[in-house]
Design a protein around this nucleic acid. Structure first.
Length: 274
DNA sequence: ATATTCCCCTGGAAGC
DNA sequence: TGCTTCCAGGGGAATA
């Protein structure tokens, strides 16, 4: 499900809901992809207070007033919600975090591609070591057309696959890669190394613009995504190419084409994107 | 190193 | 109405 905008929306909602609240204990409900060590989590975080919730790439970082915190990834279908303590379990509930005061944070994940786990928040940035190889945040200064041009030199991978590579730039998944390439007028199948400087300028701007607008609209709900409040995002109504094969291009009216790159569905306008 | 394919898992939609 | 097949916002491992 979630790309940068969806994870950002969840992070902000969780921050508002959890900051200052004390974790009594974590409960393993069942069937997680990765083992969840409830005993270690409780030893490290039981009785601790949530200091805040952040996003890095497509990961969520839940900080406590402790050296460790929780690291989560929503995979395709993961979601968090706040419920009254003891509320009936839903089918795919995997974990519960009991909060002092009568609520609990539930983690559910139908396809189990996501995870929540205890992690040490290392260094000045308080980032778990396993996230140290991620590329720059697209909405921060380190992400520039020039840096991307340099990074893409001699690369033959399709530009769409390239911008979805989390070591190149983080947060861009299949929906927003398609949309950003449309915004920039760049064909998704172009070898990354052939994208010229002025095209990178448009593409970097397109990535930033699409992601920012999607955050403002609460993300895109194509299928499973829902916010912490259970509400759907609205940006799916603003999509120009994603999921629109055969429909007219909003810019020129040509039929939107479909293709596959790196095993994922690609949508583009064969007239506007060259 | 880089490029491509496969796999993890479940559920909904589409096809027969 | 069934049964089957395909597809899905991610990411990492295994191949050439």
């Amino acid at each position: 499900m979630p790309e940068l905008p969806e994870v950002e929306v969840v992070a902000r909602a969780l921050d508002a809901a959890l900051r200052g609240r004390e974790l009594e204990r974590a409960v393993f409900i069942g069937k997680c992809r990765l083992p969840f060590d409830a005993a270690a989590t409780n030893a490290a975080l039981g009785g601790k207070t949530v200091a805040g919730v952040r996003r890095r790439a497509k990961y969520l970082l839940i900080d406590f007033n402790a050296p460790s915190g929780l690291l989560a990834h929503l995979g395709m279908t993961g979601n968090f919600r706040i419920v009254r303590r003891g509320a009936p379990r839903q089918k795919h509930d995997r974990l519960a975090f009991i909060l002092r005061g009568g609520d609990e944070l539930r983690y559910a994940d139908a396809r189990r591609f996501g995870f929540v786990r205890l992690a040490r928040m290392d260094g000045r940035e308080r980032i778990p070591e396993e996230l140290s190889r991620l590329g720059p945040e697209p909405l921060e200064r380190a992400f520039t057309a020039k840096a991307m041009l340099e990074r893409a030199r001699k690369r033959k991978t399709p530009i769409k696959t390239f911008i979805m590579d989390q070591s190149v730039v983080v947060g861009v998944g299949n929906i927003y890669a398609n949309e950003a390439l449309f915004a920039a007028g760049v064909h998704p199948g172009r070898p990354a190394g052939t994208v010229a400087q002025e095209e990178w300028t448009r593409l970097a701007a397109g990535i930033k613009s699409v992601l920012r607008r999607a955050v403002k609209k609460g993300g895109s709900t194509i299928r499973d995504y829902a916010g912490v409040d259970g509400k759907e995002g609205a940006f799916q109504r603003s999509l120009n190419v994603y999921g629109r094969a055969g429909a007219p291009c909003p810019r020129c009216g040509a039929a939107i084409a479909a293709a596959r790159h790196g095993g994922r569905s690609t949508f583009f306008c064969p007239e506007c994107q060259t």
